[in-house]
Design a protein around this nucleic acid. Sequence first.
DNA 1: ATGCTCTACGTAAGCGCTTGCGTGATGACG
DNA 2: CGTCATCACGCAAGCGCTTACGTAGAGCAT
Lengths: 345, 345
Amino acid sequence: MGKKPVLNMADLAERAGVSMASVSRALSGAPGVSEATRTRIRTLAQDLSYTVSPDAARLARGSNGRIAVVTPDVAHWFYASMLDGIVTALHDSELDVLLYEVQEERERRRFFDELPARRQVDALVLIALPISDDERSRLDLMGVPVVMAGGTLGDHPHVRIDDAAAAHQAAAHLVGVGHERIAMINATGHWTLEYAAPSERLHGFTRALHDAALPLDPELVVTERWGSGGGAEAMSRLLGLSRPPTAVVAFSDEMAFGALRTLRRAALRVPQDMSVVGIDDHSVADMLDLTTVQQPVVEQGRVAGLLVREVVEHGAARSPYVTLPTHVVVRGTTAPPPPAPGALG
Amino acid sequence: MGKKPVLNMADLAERAGVSMASVSRALSGAPGVSEATRTRIRTLAQDLSYTVSPDAARLARGSNGRIAVVTPDVAHWFYASMLDGIVTALHDSELDVLLYEVQEERERRRFFDELPARRQVDALVLIALPISDDERSRLDLMGVPVVMAGGTLGDHPHVRIDDAAAAHQAAAHLVGVGHERIAMINATGHWTLEYAAPSERLHGFTRALHDAALPLDPELVVTERWGSGGGAEAMSRLLGLSRPPTAVVAFSDEMAFGALRTLRRAALRVPQDMSVVGIDDHSVADMLDLTTVQQPVVEQGRVAGLLVREVVEHGAARSPYVTLPTHVVVRGTTAPPPPAPGALG
DNA sequence: ATGCTCTACGTAAGCGCTTGCGTGATGACG
DNA sequence: CGTCATCACGCAAGCGCTTACGTAGAGCAT
């Protein structure tokens, strides 16, 4: 009857003819064992395929080895790429990742009320998740450092892009090829909480027009819900205008995709009749030949991963605020505007 | 000096004027405390925002509350959708998810050698990860149940689609609209280990031709590496043939996208000059108007999540082998073949 | 030899919980 | 009014580790 199902440290110690203390030290790399003993124990552990129980170790030591990543949507291109960067950066560390998806309001509430990650992790990485003040104070209860990937959160470490600059680049590109009547398709969040990106990008857009001494026609700024459906809808509205634009900056590639769909259905040619530029450089943008402002998403995740490692390992990050650059990728959806009807040339 | 940084159960018990045992029982829902006491303790815990330490609980109880999900690529559409289904299915359970990405060979080896998830989880979900026999025996060392999502693995519980049937449906659709010279673009894995899908899909394809009494021209089966690049390459080879096909079944939508790109660059019209059908119903397929065989990816993940819950909670799943249906989604990339050069009609 | 410092190792006290078992109180029953 | 379940609860023994502290022996200088 009854051997333990799995070998524990006491068993190993016995077989090695030493105390548990030595085993623990040998395996963890702590000083206080001779090299000979250490090697012997390690070899034995290997042979018996023994592993220290992370839970027991963590309990005895008080915290270690795990972080939580919180994402609004596991499957969405943007968040998934971020997550990819984060786990990649963590690959050669000892940190494991506990994954939480807080998509709907219900899960959101559950996450902040119950704090399921509480006492389980050494740090938290939030992927582009706007947070209310109440929620921030709940987070503080967890008593662990937080880093924000793809946005900002108080004075917690973060990585992000300059949204205003990105939109500015998009609009400036259109100005550069000769457009004067440029629209912006902006996004509105699906939660009560607003992301900062929409207003930032609108500012950048506005500033670009201003810099080019172009008037800003309020009709040409349309806001729809986030996603390609919203983009399609927004483009319909723009086409319905008495004086439609000749080019449009979309809040994101996804919205640009929707806009392109509307244009195709309306039998308008891109870029001859209408230029479109997105923001993101979504993996599909290349396939659809969409001109866009590229932002390094995986890289943002990677930096977030490095930040969280620093924070966990050294208590703080050396340079906790990182803004990564964006740049225009010219493809086939932008060109000079068609000659104005009744124009001289 | 020295209060504990965080409230523990002993503190709570003291403040509540009861023993730890009662607190534990009250909080965990175990019998042996009166309703009155239970409520009182719970309220107090709430007020003090106390949470049981999952690690200590797990240690004392011997295992509980966490599963590992292993995916080849966090960011890839297919795996990300699977993962989404899994975490969604786990949302209203008490299970947390530990995420492991084993992308490159190095990480793969590390994962199977070190078994970082070992002693940390109650079960393992593998997302479409082909596994060698050696690796399987390593996995057995973990001593926890394994479920496979998007494939099979010995007699472990699994969810998947019928790959042969999917390819059969794709080819049959093309036969149905009148094609007789149909190619297949097949995929080859990027690892040494082969997925089962390519050969299965090839079988389904072959069988469909056979069922329609069409000859199978070996020239028309081309295999390229997985991904849209491979699809593009494969299509080039097909176009180089002395007698090119009039239609093609691609291993996946991604490969179909590549094929479409090649066709566009070759100035061939789709579907007038060439019909293309993919498999997956990738989120972008709709955007590119690609006819495809839809497979329920998120749903497969969801089912995998349910399976793992059953396995963890009841020790076994009631029906551990699930095959989900696929079906053709007709869009704009398939049409009858062009009239044969020199044909009578 | 004596005394001292090091090093390698063992002892044992926790870490924060769960749970089998024991106990007194309570109520049912004859 | 005695007898026995039953129930609510406390006691204390772990769960599998880490680590402060203690100790024996080796090495060295005196």
